[in-house]
Amino acid sequence: MTQTTAGRPTGEPAQRKQRAQITARTLRTDRWWLAPAITFAALASFLVYGLWAIFDKSYFVEPYIAPFSSPCLATSCPEGARFLGLAPFGDWWTLPPGILILGLPAGFRLTCYYYRKGYYRAFWLSPPACAVAEPHKKYTGETRLPLIIQNIHRYFFYGAVLIALVLTWDAVLALRDEHGAWGHFGLGTLILWINVVLIWSYTLSCHSCRHITAGRLNHFSKHPLRYKMWTFVSKLNRRHMLLAWLSMYSVMLADLYVRLVAKGIINFPLA
């Protein structure tokens, strides 16, 4: 039988009190606006780059494929760029092939618990910083549409794992030279491997991953293997914010590097 912790009080306070009437939006004296301003600029720059990259056609040069356009799943992809040689979307897809898979990584980051904090503060000012009043008159949070959709995060996590597997495969293929012979290790190979390690670290540090491994259990002692996985993910999870930023910039820089090589702007040996 469920019980409450204590009985209810016999009556309300004799006199209803009001909050302190302070008109200032905040009395903070530190530079509270700096963190949301940096977040705004960083996320906005990523969005601008992503928009450019998705329509840029120089996304493949043997043996590298730009992460924003991988997996390449349409007939319009160069033959060597197609994922496992397949083109399941055929030739009816005429838009840039990167758009086909954009939703998975974008949705994963958009619904990520860290990025939510970042953009709720920096873009929606809800709140801009702790103890700084938000400008909105009404607030319902994630209780109703559209923000209740944030609860879909774990499905994007599954999708993000698939994308991480694809990027890993791309990094393996980057160990071949432009003629397909194994043993190549150029600067691009190194950049793709660094990126893939950071992408995996960010993906596995996800709060949904932490929950799925064992967070949903109440008896860790009955599931020692899952508990070990949870412990590992929890260690990564403590650095989720750092990994979110590092992986965001690593994927952007790796993508840019491949495109510059494909355009011939970077053309030194072992590029």
Binding site: Y113, K117, Y120, S126, P127, C130, E142, T143
Partner: peptide
């Protein structure tokens, strides 16, 4: 208890 209102902006943790 309104868990859905929380938009995880982490001010509770900060203070």
């Amino acid at each position: 208890h309104g868990l859905g209102y929380c938009n995880i902006t982490k001010c509770c943790t900060e203070v």
